[in-house]
Computed example of a mutant assay.
Amino acid sequence: MVTFRPVKKWVIPILAIMIGSYIGFSFLPSHQEFAYKQWVQQLNKNEQKSYHVKTNFLKDDSIAFESNGYWSSKHSKFRIETPVSNGSSFQFDVYLEESQFYIHTGNEWRKGQYPHRFIEELSPLDNPFQWCKEILRNADKITRIKQGEKETYTAFFHTFPEIELQGILLKKQKNSSLSISFQKGQIQSMVFKAAPIRPNEVPFLSIYPENMVYQIDFTLYNGKLPNLPKEASSSIPID
């Protein structure tokens, strides 16, 4: 799932976040500032609901990750599939609870506590709304297009102070964007396209993608979310 594991601190200093947020936000023209506020309001409203979600992640035009499942702010469940070298794929289930997560592969159950490297490598699927709001602070330009009952917001980026996508470190960008579409105020899709510049922290011999596309499709779900199976009670803790 992960391309490399750069040496980095678990938490970005609060001061750096505050400065980065202020600089990025203060340089937006007034009409873009208005679009930014509307966008965040839409995200805040939509993250209170539950969804059936499908995810597709491409690195250098090849599928690196796919998932199908359910997301809510308190409980999520995904079936994740990643390709392996022999042309087949590896599947496993992930359950995200409020204080810990569970991984099910075959007959084996594992569990871990937050924060954890596994969750960093799962991001932004664990909390797409929060991830979007965090990176929007670094937008260099924001557009809003309204066509009837459909609204599409797009943000463009030149650099990030430090974020991760599926465990891949992103800093300077050639041409990267985040687009989110809403229909009647209901979120439909999130598409993040990145053409990153290789950070200095990445070892010389490590593989680093030239382009990436990460997409989540949302369908409002009003049914009962999948419960954590009883078998999970025997989960083996992971560091």
Rank of each mutant, 00 (worst) to 15 (best):
L220M: 10
K150C: 07
Y70G: 04
N86L: 10
S99H: 07
G24D: 01
R110M: 14
A16P: 01
N107M: 13
K111A: 13
I197S: 05
Y95F: 15
Q188K: 11
L169H: 03
P6A: 12
F182S: 03
P83V: 07
I238R: 07
W39F: 15
Q183Y: 10
R137H: 12
L96Q: 04
G69S: 07
P115K: 00
E120K: 07
E149V: 13
H116S: 14
F78R: 01
K54A: 09
F34L: 08
Q166F: 03
H52M: 00
A16G: 07
Y214L: 08
A64K: 01
V2G: 08
E121D: 12
P196N: 09
L228A: 05
E201V: 02
S233K: 14
K146Q: 15
S72H: 03
S85N: 07
W109V: 09
A195S: 12
S73V: 12
K54Q: 12
N68G: 01
G106T: 04
P124E: 01
M1L: 02
E149D: 14
F101C: 07
D126K: 06
A35R: 00
K146A: 14
E164G: 10
S26H: 13
F27I: 14
K133G: 09
I145D: 15
T82F: 00
W39A: 03
F27R: 14
L96R: 02
N175M: 11
L178I: 08
F101T: 05
S72G: 07
L28G: 07
F204S: 09
N56Y: 03
Q183A: 10
H158G: 09
F156L: 02
S89Y: 10
G20D: 12
L96V: 09
L165S: 08
I12L: 13
Q38E: 14
V7C: 01
E33C: 00
D61R: 13
K54Y: 02
H31G: 00
Y102D: 04
E151G: 05
W109K: 06
L170K: 03
S235F: 07
F192N: 00
K224V: 03
S189W: 01
K77L: 09
I145K: 15
E210G: 14
Y114A: 08
S30T: 13
G87P: 01
Y221K: 02
K49N: 13
S181G: 02
N175S: 15
I19D: 09
N138M: 13
G167A: 06
A139I: 09
R144G: 00
